[in-house]
Design a protein around this nucleic acid. Structure first.
Length: 327
DNA sequence: GCAATTTGACCTCG
DNA sequence: CGAGGTCAAATTGC
């Protein structure tokens, strides 16, 4: 928690991030060579966004990298102890529970009444089992578990919290793995739509994936937490969006097990902007469910330049301009 | 009547 | 001891 150390880490993480982004850009460039026209164009778009992300990271102060742009710190303006602490805590609260978690952060467009029920609908059936007022947050946090927890021993959990500052933003945290029947159905649906969902495993580590769909540009952040004991890490990828072609970038059989999709509540069937792209580094480890699901996913695979598990990179969500609204 | 939600109490952790 | 997470009885809705 010392500042000097943190800055060192951030500096290192910045270069790690640049490394990842560069590889992502390069990978996209290579990929685009093998695609046909419409897909190629979209791939080029993604490549450009990698470039832009690299530029932004380059121009970023190390100390500034800690800030989260959109959401994440409801009512914590100035308190200086935003989400990272909260999420870490929330996930460690109970011992012996889920080891890998998925965290999804969603921004929904301003459409109709927004309440807990407006929280992102990921296509799974959830049953609310609690609601709690959170310190420094105007809106309470809702706790959900899979409807089939009892019947099918499905351990998936979900937390939904609305941001104070921007009521259109929901912080959704997924935890645990769907093993219920709907998961299979969801997976095929996911594939056909180009969604993804995460399949966390119940291992010794604790990992989170945070996605951020920002209006009007769906974008995502990926955040992993490894909390075996005292270790923790955070990687937040640059966010980017794929404007109108959901098929461009769907890694086959993407499956992000905890479950999410971009179908937001009643906003219902949107046909675009289902997002399934990952930067290169993540592509190998995240997008392929089989890898991710297994034990071979390690933070160090993603961050090869990181020698320790105690790191933290955070980076703003870049509002890539997309003409396509997310609903 | 059953299932889902609400809500206050209780538990766990830092 | 306080904050967050979960439980379970009561309530509500279909």
């Amino acid at each position: 928690m010392e500042n000097g150390t943190m800055n060192d880490n951030k500096s290192m993480n910045k270069s790690c991030l640049l490394h990842i982004l560069s590889e992502g850009e390069e990978e996209m460039r290579r990929l685009s060579l093998n695609l046909n026209e419409p897909q190629k164009a979209a791939a080029m778009q993604v490549q450009k966004k990698f470039s832009r992300a690299i530029d932004i990271v380059n121009s970023m102060e190390v100390t500034g990298m800690q800030q989260m742009p959109v959401s994440g710190s409801p009512g914590q303006s100035g308190s200086g102890s935003p989400r990272s602490e909260g999420s870490e805590r929330s996930l460690k609260k109970r011992k012996g529970t889920v080891k890998r978690t998925i965290k999804v952060q969603c921004t929904v467009p301003n459409s109709g009444p927004l309440d807990a029920a407006s929280a992102p609908d990921d296509g799974y059936s959830w049953r609310k089992y609690g609601q709690k007022k959170i310190l420094n947050a105007t809106h309470p946090r809702s706790y959900y578990r899979c409807t089939f927890q009892k019947t099918q021993n499905c351990q998936a959990l979900k937390q939904v919290q609305r941001s104070d500052e921007d009521p259109t933003i929901f912080d959704v945290t997924y935890q645990g793995e769907h093993v219920c029947a709907q998961h299979a159905a969801q997976t095929s649906l996911t594939q056909s739509l180009g969604h993804q969902h995460i399949i966390p495993t119940q291992n010794e580590s604790d990992k989170q994936f945070m996605l951020d769909f920002t209006n009007p540009n769906p974008s995502f952040l990926i955040e992993t937490h490894e909390s075996g004991h005292d270790e923790q890490g955070t990687i937040i990828s640059p966010s980017f969006s794929i404007s109108s072609n959901p098929n461009v970038f769907s890694p086959s059989s993407t499956s992000f097990g905890g479950a999410f999709s971009s179908g937001f509540g009643s906003s219902g069937a949107s046909d675009s902007n289902y997002f399934s792209a990952f930067p290169n580094e993540f592509g190998g480890d995240f997008a392929g469910v089989s890898n991710f699901h297994g034990s071979d996913f390690e933070l160090n695979d993603v961050m090869p330049c990181s020698g320790t598990n105690d790191f933290s990179i955070e980076q703003p969500t870049y509002p890539f301009n997309s003409p396509h609204a997310f609903k």
